[in-house]
Amino acid sequence: MTVLAFAEQRNGKMPKAAYEALSQGRRIADSMEDNLYVCLVGNNVSGLAEEIAACGGDEILMCDSEVFSSYQTETYAAVLTAAIRELEPGIVLMGYTSMGKDIAPRVAERIGAGLISDCTDMEVKGNEIYFIRPMYAGKVFTRVRVRTPVKICTLRPNNFRVDKKQGKGELRKFTAEVPEVRAKVTKIKVQESKRPELTEAEIIVSGGRGLGKAEGFRIVEEVADTLGAAVGASRAAVDAGWRPQQHQVGQTGKVVTPNLYVACGISGAVQHLAGMGSSRCIVAINKDPDANIMKMADISIEGDLYKILPELENQIREFKGRET
């Protein structure tokens, strides 16, 4: 079975989800004893070939032109469709990112393929692949089979290991006919932040209603920054206007799977657990010992946030200082 991974990039940089798709693609290719093909679309992106090869890419179909300098659904979808039609892969992998969510279903419908979105695990059995993905906010998972010859799958970020394994790394120029763009990206606004993106972060420190007020997030941010973590928020905190919507973790926000999730003053409503319930380690800090989150956290601390968080920040600073 031929495996194709889509190497998502913006401005010549691949997000973590792209590396995860490559690595997972490599693992499947290995078990199928086949090549890992990679589709790379962009402008002046040949520099990425080395990194792609280091994650196992054998043959890289590169569509490199000014036309692709920014992501446009219609042009990128045309290239990916052309690549799939040429290679006829059994499986196509990419990240469940804003780009993956946008392009994958469009291409899937065009080529008549089943698409598994937000996949958290895969089982390869002979020539069949079973996909595991959550439903109902993670209250149940499904094992799904795709009936169509081409199977497309978007991977939930932070759920698939990134391995360094050298592939052949053959770079091949690829061209595809692209249509005129109707829905055109005319501007990209980037919010300057030194913190990692929520969905990619290894550590997330989140705040909720228990902080009492918007200014309460200052101490959450300080703890996050000493840890190099991202800052999240519960729906209550977002609805109260304390944090922007983009920072919301939960069913109506972002789904995250960090190694460490520190929930500060968050009660742990179902809707929040849906967004962070599969984090590897959950620490809850809350005044209420009966709060939901305290019952499912790996470590829970009962007490006053405004006393615990500054102390936490101090002690982290201390041991980080010792290490450097």
């Binding site: 209250k139 499904t142 795709v146 305290m294 956290a297 790996d298 601390i301 002690q315």
Partner: peptide
């Protein structure tokens, strides 16, 4: 449909972990 659901799997609920309470600096340590 293009997909067929083979099985529903109910995840193990997360178990209650370690509870810390007491003097702030000790708890944090």
């Amino acid at each position: 449909p293009y997909l067929s659901v083979e099985e529903y799997i109910f995840p193990e609920p997360r178990k209650e972990g370690m509870r810390l309470k007491g003097e702030v600096n000790e708890v944090v340590t």
